[in-house]
């Protein structure tokens, strides 16, 4: 019978001291891309050539037009400026929602995992209920109740990601709570909250952070999908998901109108996903005997 364990990934190794090999350079690519996107979003007011909501040219000017390297959209707004500014809501929502889901879900799972079987059972069944909804539907329900805005979109995506962290934190916390050091702390009479905060939490935070990196890509795609459905930032504010929607009807006339924002979303999600995978791999290596 074949061993179903996958071989552990090779650790990052410099070919020589102080020098990186081709594999290491390749591993840096997603980090560079993801960092580039974050920087572009942060510096958008400085590097964007135009105001993203102002008509600065004729509608649908083609790519590489003088003064508009990525052309203009159907209203005559500079497409490059809109892409740069459009990164901001995507990053805010994907990173913000994951941080929110990590904190709330992590604490929830920690309490559940350490508290024992009755409380644990009730808390996890509540998570099951949330998980029984498809992630996107859960997010739509939240937005339907609260209305469309950047804050609510972040909240909606966070709600859809929350069970992932709650389950992981609970699994890790219950494992840690059964280990000798936690048992010893309990035997020494430490309060359960202290055991949770001082003993168990520090030991589950790293895998949770690794998971968070992986989930950013899913959060970005969920945010883009919700914006595509008109549940995100209000137009005319630039938003990549909504730009895909606006460009979709122009797909036969000016395909770049939909493809460019779509490509940005896909590249960002891929880059972050690769980053998450690398962190996961590194963690697996770190945990290997």
């Amino acid at each position: 019978m074949a061993n179903s364990f996958a071989a552990p990934p090779k650790p990052v190794a410099a070919t020589r001291r102080g020098r990186l090999g081709p594999a290491d350079v390749l591993r840096l690519v997603p980090w560079v891309i993801a960092t580039g996107f974050v920087l572009a979003a942060l510096l958008a007011p400085l590097i964007a050539p135009y105001d993203p909501i102002e008509n600065v040219g004729m509608p649908m000017m083609p790519l590489f037009t003088d003064g508009h390297v990525l052309g203009t959209d159907g209203f005559g707004r500079d497409q490059l400026s809109r892409l740069l500014y459009g990164l901001r809501p995507m990053l805010v929502v994907s990173l913000g929602s994951v941080v929110l889901a990590l904190v709330v879900g992590g604490i929830y799972g920690l309490v559940s995992g350490v508290s024992g079987w009755r409380i644990d059972w009730v808390m996890m069944r509540a998570v099951d209920i949330v998980m029984s909804f498809p992630l996107i539907l859960a997010a739509i329900l939240v937005l339907a109740a609260l209305g469309a805005s950047l804050v609510n979109l972040t909240l909606a995506v966070a709600v859809s990601q929350l069970p992932i962290f709650a389950r992981l934190a609970r699994a890790l916390a219950s494992g840690e709570a059964a280990r000798d050091y936690a048992m010893a702390a309990r035997a020494a009479g430490f309060a359960p909250i202290r055991i949770m905060v001082r003993e168990v939490a520090p030991n589950i935070i790293r895998p949770l952070l690794v998971q968070a990196t992986s989930v950013v890509a899913v959060a970005a795609l969920t945010a883009a999908a919700l914006s595509y459905l008109g549940l995100g930032v209000r137009p005319p504010a630039p938003d990549l998901g909504y730009m895909v929607k606006e460009g979709q009807e122009l797909i036969f006339i000016a395909p770049e109108q939909a493809l460019l924002p779509g490509l940005v979303i896909a590249i960002f999600a891929l880059a972050v996903s690769f980053c998450g995978d690398q962190l996961g791999d590194d963690r697996a290596v770190g945990m290997a005997p």
């Binding site: 962290f165 389950r167 992981l168 998971q211 899913v218 995978d277």
Partner: peptide, 19 residues
Amino acid sequence: MTRMKDFNAPTNMSRRRFG
């Protein structure tokens, strides 16, 4: 020893699945 699928494990989109 075989590795069982953990249905309680958090979902994680692998590169292959994403592609």
